[in-house]
Design a protein around this nucleic acid. Structure first.
Lengths: 251, 251
DNA sequence: CAGTGGTCTAGACCACGAA
DNA sequence: TCGTGGTCTAGACCACTGC
C-alpha cells in the first residue's frame, strides 16, 4: 500500500491536454520523479490503486508502467511491486558509424588504399578474437581510408571465413569491408574498446603522422548470431578524428 | 493486402515453446526479417490479417508490432500499413559512466585530490561553452581522481553559477562534482567529444605520466532544461583507461 | 468509402512473493 | 492466503490514408 498523498499528487500532475491517457499517466509519473517527490527505490502505487484512483482501465495503466520500465524510470517485480529506478548516473552514448558514410556525409570524398589482403593460418591470438582454433585459415585485410587525400583511418581487420567465404574476392574500392560483411552476415551484437595509443613506425607511415602524435584506437568484435564475424582494429589520428556523441537524460 | 505466403511463412516460424504469445509473434517476425524473407520497406501483414491467420487477439498482435517498432525493426503509418524498417548500418554506443562509480564497481578504492576550486570572470571561450556572457562570474574546479593511488582522471570543470550557486561550498571528497550537479540540476541532455591528445607538462605532472604518453580527452557539455550546467574536460591516461561499449544490431 | 493503425475498456487467468 | 505484476481476449471508437 502506498500513502494516499502519492496518488493525490499524481492525480494533480495529470495534465488535461488532449493526449492519450497512457501518455499523460507516463508524464505525470515522470514529473513526480523529476521533481523529487518520488525518490529512488520508493514504492509506486500498484496498478490496481492507480486504476481506482485515476479511473482508468488496468491495461492502460499497465502500458504506461511497462513503457516507463523499459525506458529505465521504474523497476517492477512480479509479486512485489513497482519502484522508482535508481538513476545510475548517466550512461551516455557515443555513436560509431561506418567511416565511408561519415566522410561522404560531411560532404567530402572517401577513397581507400588496400595495403594488404589475404589469408593465413591463425596464430593463437588471432584464433581467440575470432572464436576459432589455432591453425585454422582466416582472412585479413589492411586498408587506409582517406578523406580528401588525408588519411583518417587505418583499418586492420580479421575475418572469419566460415561466415564470409567470399571476403577476399570483393572490390573494396567500391564498398567497404564493413558494408560487405553487413550484407553477408547481418550483425546481431558487438563490443568495442576505445583507447588512446601511440602508433608504431609502420602505422605512422601509413597515416602520414609525425612522431608522438597520439591516435584513437577502436578495437571491435562483431557477432552474427553466435559466430564472431570479424575483429577490427581501427586507428585514427587524434588530430584528424574525434568521436562525437549526444545523450539525453531520463526523458 | 499481403500475399498469403507471407503469413503462412510467419505461422510456420511461430515456435511453440512456452513463452508469451506476443514474444513468439515478435520472434517469428524477426526471424523472417533476419532470414531475408521479408525485405526492407516490404509491407508486413496488417493487424487484422495477423489476428485472423494466427488466431490471436488484436491487442496481442498490436503489442508485438508496437514493440518491434520501438525496437527499430518495423515502421508503422496510420492509415497506410506496417513495413520492414531499413537497417541503417549500425550506430554503436559507448557508455560513459561516472568515474567514482566505475572505480568502486571494479572493487577498487576511489579517492580524489582537489587541486583548485574557485570562481573567476568568464573569458570569451569560457562564456561560450557555458552559454553565458563574457565577464560573468563562473565557477571552476580542477580535481584528480585516483584508483587505488594511481591517478586515472584529471577533471577540469566549469560550472554555471546560476544553476548551481552552492557549487563551491561542497565537499568533493565526499561526493563527486558530477553527483552534486546531478542532484541540483537533473541533466536533460548532453554532448561530448572523445579524442586522443598529448597532455601538456602540467597535466603530465598531475597524472604522473611520462613524456609522449597519449591520453583520452572527453569534453562534455551538459544541459538541464535549456541551460548549460557545466563544461568538463576529462583527461584519462591512455595506458590506464579504456572506454568499453557493447551494442546490439537490430535484435 | 474501406482499410489501416492508435487507443481504450472490462474482465479474466496466471505466476510469483510475502506473510 | 492475498496482493502483486504478466498476459490475454473480444469488442469498441477514433483518426488517418488512399481511392
Amino acid at each position: 500500500m502506498v500513502e494516499h498523498s502519492a496518488i493525490a499528487q499524481l492525480a494533480a500532475a495529470m495534465s488535461d491536454e488532449p493526449a492519450p491517457i497512457y501518455q499523460r499517466v507516463k508524464q505525470a509519473i515522470i514529473s513526480q520523479i523529476r521533481a523529487g517527490s518520488w525518490k529512488a527505490n520508493q514504492r509506486v502505487p500498484s496498478e490496481s490503486e492507480l486504476v481506482n484512483e485515476l479511473g482508468v482501465s488496468r491495461m492502460t495503466i499497465n502500458r504506461a508502467l511497462r513503457e516507463l520500465t523499459s525506458e529505465g524510470f521504474l523497476v517492477r517485480m512480479q509479486g512485489v511491486g513497482t519502484f522508482v529506478a535508481e538513476m545510475k548516473g548517466y550512461t551516455a552514448m557515443l555513436e560509431v558509424h561506418n567511416i565511408a558514410d561519415e566522410i561522404t556525409q560531411r560532404g567530402h570524398q572517401h577513397r581507400c588504399q588496400i595495403l594488404a589482403i589475404g589469408q593465413n593460418k591463425a596464430d593463437p591470438e588471432q584464433a581467440a578474437v575470432l572464436g576459432l582454433s589455432t591453425g585454422q585459415t582466416i582472412f585479413h585485410s589492411l586498408i587506409v581510408h582517406y578523406e580528401d587525400d588525408l588519411p583518417v583511418q587505418l583499418e586492420d581487420r580479421l575475418v572469419n571465413p566460415l561466415v564470409a567465404p567470399d571476403y577476399l574476392s570483393q572490390d573494396y574500392h567500391q564498398l567497404t569491408p564493413y558494408t560487405y560483411l553487413m550484407q553477408v552476415a547481418p550483425l546481431t551484437a558487438g563490443e568495442h574498446i576505445v583507447e588512446a595509443v601511440l602508433p608504431d613506425a609502420r602505422q605512422r607511415k601509413y597515416l602520414s603522422l609525425d612522431d608522438h602524435e597520439p591516435c584513437l584506437l577502436i578495437r571491435r568484435q562483431t557477432w552474427s548470431d553466435t559466430k564472431i564475424v570479424t575483429y577490427a582494429r581501427l586507428l585514427y589520428p587524434g588530430s584528424r578524428y574525434k568521436l562525437l556523441g549526444r545523450f539525453k537524460g531520463h526523458g
